[in-house]
Design a protein around this nucleic acid. Structure first.
Lengths: 222, 222
DNA sequence: TTTGACCTTGCGGAAATCCGCAGTATTGAA
DNA sequence: TTCAATACTGCGGATTTCCGCAAGGTCAAA
């Protein structure tokens, strides 16, 4: 009782090899592997064409694609394309990323079936994920589950995120105001820009805007 | 002709398993593995005590140590302690980190024998490293070699780094000036603070100081 | 020694931000 | 509908940063 055709998309060879070896040890017969997003998508389509489609995709999120004109530049793009090509394909994300927004987006909007954070027990949790997905249930590893259940975390609205991003990218308040007006975003007066930046300084407990930008950047929020 | 007793220190189990499996496949007989720094050091000392010391340590740099009062909090600390306990132990770093300053420090000041960046061919390069180290030569993988050979990279002086750090931490120019005067750092006039920040904006091609802080932070320079 | 390039420093003014105030608009509950 | 709380906006002034200028200082080559 297990998946018997699985594709592993992961660029780092040590990780890739670790996952593939693990899958073999738990009895998965046919294991495809790919270190590039484009190649992974190709294998999925080829398997479909041969009437022997993959049942499960295990994918990392970040890929380096050196010297390749690749269309798919990230795991997210691969997953979206794969789901489009084969809607019944199950997908588990296997990534070091433990950011709430990333996990939430993938699980809720991208229709991913499982999320496992790489770490001390990542491989073991991957096995748990396979068992759970096989009986048509969704799975998040303990680390991901904990992150998702945290309430009142520093979470930015789209507006705040956009504001911070523009600020961090060197736009002055008057330019941000003009930009918001052009895009129909409100509030967009200079005074409101100021007020919102000031509120963000408070919530982050930052002494000034420089520190605010520093904190938001190092927390990976922008 | 190969090492026959090697210790792998790496917290992420998928990576750990990948490396260990690889080592087995190239004929290393005795392979120790450890997901915690303290545990790794213990194994090294134990093996020495038993008169069957490890010949080689393969270590990651970043470790998560949950729920453990661990003394060694990073790969750097482990390496330093291991070299102290067993000076003839050879050490290869196996890490995703490809920052010039990190590699340089480890290879030149910490006496590390090899540095391999995790990536597409990390495992293969690790095998190359083993072969090279076995004949008493030092090794850096192509990625690390390329990083080290780059000249004129954005590299900050201690002064610039300190300045950026203070700026990013919300100190205003007058406070930075006072701080520098108290510490005997020069230049320390407000005008020079301004001039140096301005120079940094130029080198980073930043529109203003907010963007400068953002760039320096996301590049991991501060 | 002289020269010239470069750095440091202080001053003053321009530019950008920060912040309180007051008027208006919006929203949600009574 | 009315009321109160909250948000948005413009204005004016304080604070901070930004930048050019000029007066020294340092250092090395001629």
């Amino acid at each position: 009782m297990n998946f018997n055709k699985v594709l592993v998309a992961e660029d780092t060879d040590s990780n890739n090899f670790g996952v593939v070896t693990k899958l073999k040890s738990i009895g998965v017969h046919t294991i495809g592997q790919s270190q590039y997003c484009d190649d992974a998508l190709l294998k999925i389509k080829k398997a479909q064409f041969d009437k022997q489609p993959y049942q499960l995709l295990i994918s990392d999120l970040s890929f380096v694609n050196p010297h390749r004109k690749s269309k798919l530049k990230s795991g997210e793009a691969l997953i979206k394309a794969a789901k489009k090509a084969q809607p019944d394909l199950k997908v588990v994300v296997f990534s070091v990323i433990d950011k709430r927004s990333t996990i939430q987006n993938l699980m809720e909007k991208q229709g991913v079936d499982g999320y496992v954070c790489k770490g001390l027990n990542g491989l073991k949790e991957l096995e748990n994920a396979l068992n759970t997905l096989f009986i048509d249930q969704r799975f998040t590893c303990p680390v991901a589950t904990a992150v998702l259940s945290q309430k009142n975390v520093l979470e930015l609205s789209d507006y705040e995120q956009q504001l911070l991003r523009l600020l961090a990218n060197g736009f002055k308040q008057s330019e941000i105001s003009a930009h918001f007006k052009a895009n129909g975003t409100n509030p967009n007066s200079i005074r409101s820009i100021e007020a919102n930046v000031s509120k963000l300084r408070d919530t982050f407990d930052a002494k000034n805007s420089h520190q605010l930008v520093h904190m938001a950047t190092s927390l990976g929020l922008i």
